[in-house]
């Protein structure tokens, strides 16, 4: 069963003008947000984006922008209490997830 989170909240943006179709964003995205067609990237499933920032970090053309962060309530609370950015203590683990 597929997981779905809130709609229309993420900060992901793509500037198609700058894109050269290198497919890097498609390769690094863990939620298949992008596809590349006719040498241009397309945002296919924006609501599946978890704002990990991998695509923007690996786009050499700087065509992608996203405010990266951890979607971690405990980390956000901790950040608010300490007056810092959301920080996650990463006590859980597994090869699959964070925080």
């Amino acid at each position: 069963m597929e997981h779905r989170y809130l709609k229309n909240v993420v900060t992901l943006k793509l500037d198609v003008e700058k894109c050269n179709g290198c497919k890097m964003c498609m390769i690094v995205c863990p939620h298949n947000v992008f596809i590349v067609e006719e040498r241009k990237a397309i945002i296919l499933n924006k609501d599946l984006c978890m704002e990990c920032g991998a695509c923007a970090k690996n786009c050499a053309q700087e065509a992608i922008s996203v405010k990266p962060g951890v979607g971690c309530a405990a980390g956000i609370l901790m950040g608010m209490l300490k007056g810092t950015e959301p920080t996650c203590d990463c006590t859980s683990d597994s090869g699959s997830s964070c925080c």
């Binding site: 993420v10 978890m50 971690c72």
Partner: peptide
């Protein structure tokens, strides 16, 4: 359950912030 957002593998910071404003 809200804290499980951090352990899950698909929640975005923007989404969790929105949820927390209400929660």
């Amino acid at each position: 359950a809200m804290n499980f957002t951090g352990t899950s593998t698909y929640t975005s910071l923007s989404g969790v912030l929105k949820e927390m404003k209400l929660a």
